[in-house]
Design a protein around this nucleic acid. Sequence first.
DNA 1: ACGTTCAATTGAACGTGTTCAAGAAAGAAG
DNA 2: CTTCTTTCTTGAACACGTTCAATTGAACGT
Lengths: 221, 221
Amino acid sequence: MKAARAAKSAETREKILEAALELFRERGFAETSMREVAAQAKVATGLAYYYFSSKDAIVLAFYQRAKDDLKPLIDEVQTGKKLETRLLDIIRVKFRYFAPNRKFLGALMAHAADPGNSLSPFAGESRDVREQDLAQFARALTETGTPVPDDMAAHLPKVLWMYQMGLILFWMYDRSEGQQRTARLLEASARMVVALIKLSSLPLLRPARKTVLELVEIVES
Amino acid sequence: MKAARAAKSAETREKILEAALELFRERGFAETSMREVAAQAKVATGLAYYYFSSKDAIVLAFYQRAKDDLKPLIDEVQTGKKLETRLLDIIRVKFRYFAPNRKFLGALMAHAADPGNSLSPFAGESRDVREQDLAQFARALTETGTPVPDDMAAHLPKVLWMYQMGLILFWMYDRSEGQQRTARLLEASARMVVALIKLSSLPLLRPARKTVLELVEIVES
DNA sequence: ACGTTCAATTGAACGTGTTCAAGAAAGAAG
DNA sequence: CTTCTTTCTTGAACACGTTCAATTGAACGT
């Protein structure tokens, strides 16, 4: 029986992942050792490394799972008629989903921020997550019939993705109760982002648009 | 003799700092061990910890020294008549100074990006550095006689500081030869930043300015 | 000169993330 | 059933950042 073996293996992997996430949530990422994770999952230390290539990889696995969990939750919310509503809904769904793990998600950011790591796990592994995010923003733009200048169309989803990432970073640092500061920033900034997109279609603002596009192209090159 | 003792102590500290920076530059931050640093400085491992509370603290010490080194270099350049020239000059001076250490400075960012570290060394220790940066941008604004709306005046230096930090982050990641992408981004973005500041004085744009200010105030609260 | 004091210095020790040689378990092949 | 192969699983071992009890040695009071 090949399937039973694979199932048992997946089960063990899951057991380790759950044990780790539980401890990360309780005690924090840095404060939890791989030995404790293994003990909690009732396996030997080395086995955690058989299933996960590093401690960071565990957080990354959670991140991958989040991608799959979030897909239907976001699809459910891709109904609003206005772009602003869609942006708010998409981002709020993510905040709600990640809320219990808010504190230790920062640990991932910390390592991802290290330029030395650009080739390593993160760039490659998190590509699917980013692709999915981009598709969601692209969908929100087209389905709401938001008019977008031709030269901006290719870049706008990525710009919205960066906007989202900035908000998530702010959210991870946000120590206000219930992260209400992030909530306010989200509302105010989403309004502004949408206003800017609308303004960008005005013929009068063509030079300004070209200037911004120049920046975007340097950043993405 | 008390002074001789203190001088010797400072000398040892300097010896360790130099040994560390040399190895960090050659081999990278993560790839250099504290034992190697101590060996290079010809002292015992523990002594490095007598002078520096952690490995990160060594990079921080370099960062502190940079602040003092940069002060006269930037003063020298605070002469341009136009705000754009000043911004370009100030930021270019920093790039030039940090260039040899570009790769390992990222290591500091990585740890500083961890939300769990907000109370720890970085927030406190890097305050002076930030204060000095803010003062430099404030000086550039006033000495060039740039007209700034009253409600923006208090925030603008910090906004410029954030702009600078964004550029530095981009620069640390920039793998293009001689970081030419950063050079181009700097030029294009500085032009835009200055244009935006000028536009912000137009009475017609008062509502837009208020919107942006609302965001800035949420972020800084 | 002699003991006292305290900054400076040492190297072993701790707990960490990670690796690895060795072994157990489970199918496949004969 | 026996042997071979592949997949899991183990725990000791490694190098790391960091801590610490112990030692040195220079300045000081007497």
